[in-house]
């Protein structure tokens, strides 16, 4: 392999790696898949990851040519579809002996697949949070109130995210809006109003990063795992701030 070929391979693997990490795949899978992909393309890959950057060294098996990259991890929305497809791509490259050109073309088609319809997600999340309310013991009114409160909160989140507002601010604002809406159920005098108020913000809880972080820790990628958990914890703090604003506004008369 020539120097240029190795550089090209390193470029592609760096991109593959950063896309996977950016889409919220847990670290050990990313490392394993990138190594498998490198193997299929005839190079050895060594990887170091952290929260915002990753470093990889690609080396030819025969000659002693090395190529090292430090890549920024782009912040894509979490995508399980990329997780599944890009993992499958690494196996396909391994099993079908694909060339770099083929793999790259396949990669480009996979990452440009259509995403989830925002309206679909809006309705699914609202339904999910209403069911969640039920799981916590809410009655039909609490569920209905949670449904529309989640809808307005999640719509706010989608809208602000589209406007590229800082995600901490997005979380605070959407938690506040959702909980303010849910707090109107207090006026109905139903006993489950408190449940509606508490569940209305739970659609924001970053469950995927939390679980990913713990999977990383159990896999031994403890640093990355902890940074993921700390990141998720920051978002939970933001949710609590948003909800506290509501509680301070509303509960002053209650307490």
């Amino acid at each position: 392999m020539t120097r240029e070929q190795i550089a090209e391979t390193a470029d592609f693997i760096a991109r593959y790696l950063s896309y996977m990490l950016g889409a919220g795949v847990h670290t050990s899978r990313v490392v394993r898949n990138s190594k498998r992909l490198g193997n299929a393309l005839g190079v050895d890959v060594a990887i170091h990851t952290s929260q915002k950057t990753a470093m990889l060294t690609v080396s030819d098996k025969d000659s002693n040519v090395l190529n090292t990259r430090v890549v920024d991890i782009p912040s894509f929305p979490i995508s399980f579809e990329w997780n599944a497809d890009l993992s499958a791509l690494s196996w396909a490259a391994h099993d079908r002996k694909m060339t770099l050109e083929e793999v790259r073309r396949e990669f480009d088609t996979l990452v440009s697949k259509p995403g989830m319809n925002p309206v679909f997600v809006l309705f699914m999340v609202s339904l999910a949070n209403a069911s969640f309310c039920r799981l916590f013991g809410g009655d039909i009114w609490a569920m209905l109130v949670t449904f529309t409160a989640t809808m307005i909160g999640f719509f706010t989140r989608q809208h602000l995210t589209k406007k590229k507002v800082n995600h901490y601010i997005v979380f605070i604002v959407s938690a506040f809006v959702a909980s303010i809406c849910a707090s109107t159920s207090l006026s109905l005098g139903i006993p489950t109003a408190e449940i509606a108020l508490a569940t209305s913000v739970l659609y924001l809880v970053p469950g995927v990063p939390l679980i990913n972080g713990l999977i990383d820790i159990t896999d031994g990628h403890i640093q990355t795992g902890i940074s993921r958990i700390v990141n998720a914890f920051m978002l939970i703090v933001c949710i609590a701030i948003g909800l506290s604003i509501t509680l301070i506004l509303v509960k002053n008369s209650l307490l």
Partner: peptide, 28 residues
Amino acid sequence: GKFKPSDKTVTVLISAVAVLLAGSLLAG
């Protein structure tokens, strides 16, 4: 055209939610 699932599926979901809402409002 730019998203999955298809528009038809989403429309069905929205209508189902509307029916659910109306139904639970009647029941409540």
